[in-house]
Design a binder for these strands. Structure first.
Length: 500
RNA sequence: GCGCCUCUAGCUCAAUUGGCAGAGCAUCGGACUCUUAAUCCGCAGGUUCUGGGUUCAAGUCCCAGGGGGCGUACCA
């Protein structure tokens, strides 16, 4: 950095600043006054200077804080250090104290009796009208995007509200929030490839969790009857508009409940959030409408396949007959696919994409549901469902498998699939079996992808818009760019031009 | 992974068949006492993502690489 006198203010910014109002509160309290009226009320606000209109003897600034914007009306006659105020840069953080007035043109404003530079910006802010349009820059420099893209700010603040509302809603129903390990010895509880890491002192290979499921059910065994966790999980797979390698999962376990109780819980929670965030249970997503009012339709996977293909399938059908039907629909059949996997593949190929929802797709085949309890009426199926909302899977839930011997057998089946070439088969967790041997009561469990829920409620078309800092490759030349701060910076300009 | 598209000043974008790399905003200097993306005058601002190649001449054409976007595959 330059040592020029012009840079001195950067070392004089205060350590703290007392604010007694927000732009939104001022607008709410005084927005109704007449043009040209003065309130006699003095307020102090702080934020960034986002616009500046210099009239010579009057400077109009626009200050933005986390609640909105207000105009700063600064006449030379009454503004302390008027020269300094008029030489502020767009993007500078300032604190302003002054009377709340409305200008003759009807803009609610603060007329400064004092102002303080809280932090200068040394880099120019983006175009004040266009902001940042390049998605790469928006995600990498979210700290700027949040100021210049109202949509980003609103969506990501809504995400925070959704998390808060969800926690409160669950706590109101006696669920307690817990934190379980992120480092797992075995990647299990879901079908996905994990990230691997290593603990040096223990000389121990570990995986970042792909799901908290098995730990949470250990807690049910331990007597936590209603428990949930909202936390990050990590899956080592592709990135897309719907996938970020780290994402946030809500998982919940409810002792003495079954999957029908979970269905009621999900639709009640989601419609509650829709009302709180969107103001209605009817919301729009993209160019379509979605009615989230309860109850949501329930239909079994086999019923839905029949609806969309006219084919009446059954889990009891001959494996090769199912394989032939699957092939007919374009499924790439692998040797180790049993009837259950074939039915799931047929569903995914023919039916899933046509569903808009909200709808519960129920009674998944046992073969593809290693943690779900056998269906009480239909052998070969389980009491599992997924909710499809806006054409996407929103959650996965089931009556939990409680029998340790059966669970052991399912894990062994998974290991056999892994051996047969299924890279994402679920890992064997023997301690979890031991926990089940102590007795897991009847339990309903649920997993909701929070990012997708936020996408739904904020009408976002990519997951990157609901994640503050989505996973990206490292920026090319990043270090050089940072090192060049002093040469391209606003703060370095005055000494170069004024000495000429 | 694969396919298609894209990358030019801090930001938003131009640049004809291959012919001197430009504008607006921001910044800097100047004018202006009610502006609303203020306006007006002026200065400055570039490794055209990188590296090769073709050509008298490349932002433009070719090859390789990098970043990003979209689609597809896997999944939540």
């Amino acid at each position: 950095m330059s040592d020029s006198p012009e840079n001195e203010p950067t070392t004089e910014v205060p350590y703290r600043f007392d604010v007694d109002a927000t732009t939104a509160s001022l607008l709410a309290e005084h927005g109704g006054i007449a043009d040209g009226e003065e309130t006699g009320v003095t307020a102090t606000v702080a934020g960034r200077l986002m616009l500046k209109r210099d009239q010579g003897k009057i400077v109009f600034g626009v200050l933005q804080d986390s609640t909105g914007r207000i105009q700063i009306f600064a006449p030379a006659k009454t503004t302390p250090d008027f020269e300094g105020f008029s030489s502020l840069n767009l993007g500078d953080w300032i604190g302003v104290t002054g009377e709340v007035i409305k200008t003759r043109r009807g803009e609610l404003s603060i007329r400064p009796s004092a102002w303080t530079l809280l932090a200068p910006t040394r880099r120019p802010f983006p175009d004040k009208w266009h902001g940042i349009t390049d998605p790469d820059t928006r995600y990498r420099q979210r700290y700027v995007d949040l100021w210049v893209s109202e949509e980003s700010s609103r969506t990501l603040r809504d995400r925070s509200r959704i998390l808060s509302l969800t926690r409160r809603w669950l706590e109101d129903r006696e669920f307690i929030e817990v934190e379980t390990p992120m480092f797992h010895h075995v990647a299990s509880g879901a079908m996905a490839r994990p990230f691997a890491t290593h603990h040096n002192a223990l000389d121990l290979d570990l995986f970042l969790r792909i799901a908290p499921e098995l730990y949470l059910k250990r807690l049910t065994v331990g007597g936590f009857e209603r428990v949930f966790e909202i936390g990050r999980v990590f899956r080592n797979e592709g990135i897309s508009t719907r996938h970020n390698p780290e994402f946030t999962m809500l998982e919940l376990y409810w002792a003495y409940a079954d999957y029908t109780d979970i269905m009621e819980l999900v639709e009640n929670l989601v419609s509650h959030l829709a009302v709180e965030i969107c103001g209605s249970t009817t919301i729009s997503y993209g160019d379509r409408e979605l009615d989230l009012s309860t109850p949501w339709r329930r239909a079994t996977m086999i019923e839905l396949i029949a609806e969309h293909t006219g084919r009446e399938l059954s889990i009891d059908m001959d494996r090769d007959a199912l394989a032939a039907i699957a092939t007919e629909f374009g499924v790439e059949v692998k040797e180790w696919y049993g009837p259950g996997k074939l039915i799931l593949e047929i569903y995914e190929k023919t039916t899933e994409a046509k569903l808009w929802g909200p709808i519960y797709v129920t009674d998944y085949p046992k073969e593809v549901s290693p943690l779900s309890r056998d269906h009480r009426e239909h052998p070969g199926l389980t009491e599992r469902f997924e909710a499809i909302v806006a054409g996407r899977e929103l959650c996965n839930a089931f009556s939990e498998l409680v029998d340790p011997d059966e669970q052991l057998a399912r894990f062994e089946d998974q290991e056999a699939e892994r051996a047969a070439g299924e890279a994402e088969a679920m890992g064997m967790d023997r301690d979890y079996i031991r926990a089940l041997q102590y007795g897991l009561p009847p339990t309903g469990g649920l997993g909701i992808g929070i990012d997708r829920l936020v996408m739904l409620l904020t009408d976002s078309k990519t997951i990157r818009d609901v994640v503050l800092f989505p996973t990206l490759r490292p920026e090319q030349g990043e270090v050089d760019s940072v090192a060049s701060t002093d040469s391209d910076a606003i703060a370095a300009e005055p000494d170069s031009s004024e000495t000429e």
